[in-house]
Design a protein around this nucleic acid. Sequence first.
RNA 1: GUGAGUGUAGCUCAAAUGGUUAGAGUACCUGACUGUGGCUCAGGAUGCUGUGGGUUCAAUUCCCAUCACUCACCCCA
Length: 418
Amino acid sequence: MSELKQSRPKGTQDFVPPDSERRRQVEAAFRHLAACYGYREIITPTFEHTAVFVKSSGEGSDVVTKEMYSFKDRAERDLTLRPEGTPGVVRAALENRLRLPCRLYYVGPFFRYGRPQKGRFREFGQVGVEALGEASPLVDAEIIYFGADFFRRLGISDCTVQVNSIGCRTCRPAYRETLRKSLFDQKERLCADCLVRLERNPLRVFDCKVETCRQAVQDAPTPRQHLCADCERHHEQVLSALTRRGLRHAANDRLVRGLDYYNRTTFEYLSTSLGAQDSLGGGGRYDYLVEDFGGPPTPGVGVAIGLERTLLAAPVAPAPARRHLAFVIWLTEAERAAAQELADRLRTDGIAAQVDYDARKVKGQFRSADAAEATCCIIIGPDELAKSVYSLKDLATGEQREVASDVLVEAVRALFRD
RNA sequence: GUGAGUGUAGCUCAAAUGGUUAGAGUACCUGACUGUGGCUCAGGAUGCUGUGGGUUCAAUUCCCAUCACUCACCCCA
């Protein structure tokens, strides 16, 4: 393979047709569904002040400590390519003084530094929704259902949902200490990472996959057992709302998630077809985040879904949107201008049209039409010119007939219909 | 950031234990078909074997380094 001067940066990807079209299909499906649930699109910057992420996701979180693309701009401002969606959305909602409650969805690229592997990229596509100002557990349930609905509509059947509650300001501090004590008593079983987590955020030990840590956690009290009355009631209502909808879900006491801003409900969608990165998406409630940004006390809950993983898990790649193209073919130099004029005329009528201006021979033009996956060809030669007609050929069936100029557009549209 | 595996034609892959001119399928181009694609047949073009170094009479093959990709750890989308 001859060496190219430029190659794409590690962890990025090119989407060439038809993959680009498939991806847009999935995005379109998401936009449609989000709109069905009352969400409207918010578009925020791809980079933010670094503090936006540090303050919301947590100084000690892995995302912040080792996965951010941070840089200084020419005026020495600390900026970061967004590693996740929620902080930017909350910041923007406050900055624009959006009236609450408000439901927002987003679609776009996100960035995290890390070794790429199956389903993990440095630049990745993510879609998500955020419900700001809604406190009801029914909203948590609706959002969990929304994600499951999305996957179901894409034909992803092996998706399972795990749900947990990690408590609130009232019950978490006491629980955290109880947990810390329990883990401290068996600290010889913990790995080096978990010893650090024990200090910073003992809940994170639940995420550890090291066998001895898992055992330690097995014997430790779970957040679930230590919820205050309000949290317990909230959680019960979330679960029962899911059950009422017929959404199968599994309780997972160790599901705490890596971002610091979550409280109460956390959830995650898992798929077996993704490899080691088995999470399709996840989310949770964040009732203190808006306040942390200096806004009024405002509850919030949201979900984020990975686009690449969704594409991976979809059993059949979503078909690219049906696309139609008319290819205008000329025979001799004398008809080339006429071909170009016809293409322009068709485009004016909203019909996609293309001409191979370079080809010397008819055969080459037909091949170009095939390569472009055209629906039909319109041939202009001396005979057609003399008779003031066009020869219209359906490339799928091979049928060809002469069509008068004034009914050509209608005839092409008829071919485009199926 | 740590580890393992893999780098040969545009693509998918061959080339016993080092051996002389690196092959096949597919895609591509040309012709059979001087105004008709997809099928068939015939012909044609294509490689600094990822890069740099080393061992050897000889390296696609062995060794070292480096880069890239893949998978896993980690983390999560």
